[in-house]
Amino acid sequence: MARTLKLRIWRGDDKTGGLQDVTVEANHGEVVLDIIHRVQATQMGDLAVRWNCKAGKCGSCSMEINGKPRLACMTQVASYPEDETITITPLRAFPVIKDLVTDVSFNYKKAMEIPSVEMPPGMKPGEPRMQQIDVERSQEFRKCIECFLCQDTCHVIRDHEENKKSFAGPRFFIRIAELDMHPLDILRNRKKSAQEEHGLGMCNITKCCTEVCPEHIRITDNAIIPMKERVVDEKYDPLRWLGSKIRKREGML
């Protein structure tokens, strides 16, 4: 069943621009990205939007729909009332390049600052033995599709450009947690560096990141809070830190 949809789309860049009203046909079962493509093909040939898989797996079409950070390919038109005008704007936490496309290079810089996985010396390919239960904790975080919606919604940087320098953001807290819980990784002090170098302490666990995660990763409960708790433990109890590392190695053998 076709319906006529009213949209307000941000056109412009980081200097100038504004919301433009558009009226477009929508069919049953379509998502916002389908609609944007129809606008592109019929009314605004140069409307800039990032997208890729259109299946919720690549995390490219991140934008704000009625002010909420969302993947356009995962947002059904039918979830909005018939007469509602849908407002589509670029991610607010990052500089706009054009229209719905933002400069997300911040995230790639942060990725570079986190030390990579470090394997036990002498371990050869094919040797690792790990139990499913031990890999599952990190696997949850490796579901991340890097849509950066969590980064966009996080109030530590959303309206505070000045915090970006010292704050890696939820996406990279789960990256650190993933490596910290990785059964093979031998690098020490990941939690401590999360706290001291990547701004974990600035997070005050409002769970906004968890709420917007399209992969339903429990960012706050399973990554941020455990790291915050243990970083406190370790500060007071070095033996406990040692114990956690020994357990980690057992899992590996």
Binding site: P125, P128, Q131, Q139, R142, H182
Partner: peptide, 21 residues
């Protein structure tokens, strides 16, 4: 097989058998 094992050395976490492989 070597290409898969190599991925594991670079941090990939595949699902496991009961023996841990």
């Amino acid at each position: 097989p070597d290409r898969i094992w190599e991925l594991e050395m670079w941090g990939a976490l595949f699902d496991r058998t009961s023996e841990g492989k």
